[in-house]
């Protein structure tokens, strides 16, 4: 089985700073690391390969030339190959353009049966690229995977984490999964892996290599305009209804009618 893992190089800080003028991330002067959630995806890909006793794991990243460092860490952990998608034409991509570009690269790699991604990147926090890659490829996808139960030649059974429990899903291959941190404990890159990573040659694919539609990549292919960044609030409030049971029931019914749910 050929497994592709999409990883992103992110600023190594928990406090991401935003440029207030452009509403984009400030990257200058901040050391980079592999997006922590992507480490779980790399680990799970390696475990699937070990479970099956054969296969190839390819790590993939789109970014500036220094994103090769993130791919080197993936190699140090044990992935077989790594490809960097880097081209000035890719710059300024939103999630739509990024997903399109990554999907084209997965097609170019060829014979990929499974794509794994972290649930989201810690800088942008959108969680959109994984599912959008699957849509571009026309494959099924499942987000928030916490466990891979069975791996068949054409089907995989997974557990998807939800707010109140989990769903067990059988998914036909090829497919894309995004994983949560509950899925495993990522291995540390061993010394032999680190030495191998240092020497590894990482091919760089440009827009021309991918035969992409120039209108769908980089800033040109990015319709997203960031107006404001905020975390959606899910507020729950409780109100105690006093009185006898009959009075409480009547008051409750009135409230529910007022909310249009009864």
């Amino acid at each position: 089985m050929k497994i592709a893992v999409c990883i992103k190089q992110v600023p190594a800080t928990t406090e991401v700073k935003i440029n207030p003028a452009t509403n984009t991330l400030i990257r200058e002067g901040i050391p980079n690391e592999v997006n922590p959630f992507d480490l779980y995806a790399i680990e799970e890909a390696l475990r699937i390969k070990e479970r099956l006793g054969s296969g190839t794991v390819v790590a993939l990243s789109m970014g500036p030339p220094q994103a090769a460092d993130a791919l080197r860490e993936a190699i140090a952990m044990g992935v077989d190959e790594a490809v960097l998608l880097s081209d000035r034409a890719f710059a300024g991509a939103d999630t739509l353009a990024t997903a399109y570009t990554l999907a084209k690269a997965i097609e170019k790699i060829g014979e990929v049966s499974l794509v794994l991604c972290g649930k989201q990147a810690v800088d942008g926090d959108t969680a959109q690229v994984g599912p959008e890659i699957a849509e571009n490829l026309g494959w099924p996808h499942v987000t928030y995977i916490r466990k891979i139960n069975e791996i068949g030649p054409s089907e995989i059974v997974v557990e998807r984490m939800t707010d109140d429990g989990y769903e067990r899903l059988a998914v036909s291959l090829p497919a894309l999964f995004t994983v949560v941190k509950e899925i495993n404990v990522p291995r540390l890159p061993g010394i032999k892996g680190q030495l191998r990573a240092k020497k590894a040659e990482i091919p760089v694919w440009t827009a021309a290599d991918l035969e992409v539609d120039p209108g769908r990549i980089g800033l040109t292919g990015s319709p997203t305009q960031v107006r404001k960044i905020f975390y959606p609030q899910h507020e729950t409030t409780a109100e105690m209804i006093e009185g006898s049971p009959a009075e409480q029931a009547a008051a409750l019914l009135e409230k529910l009618r007022g909310l249009g749910v009864a």
Binding site: R187, L188, P189, G190, I191, K192, G193
Partner: peptide, 11 residues
């Protein structure tokens, strides 16, 4: 096991 995976057992 972690030390083994990290290749430190054979330094």
């Amino acid at each position: 096991k972690v030390l083994a995976e990290a290749d430190l057992c054979g330094v």
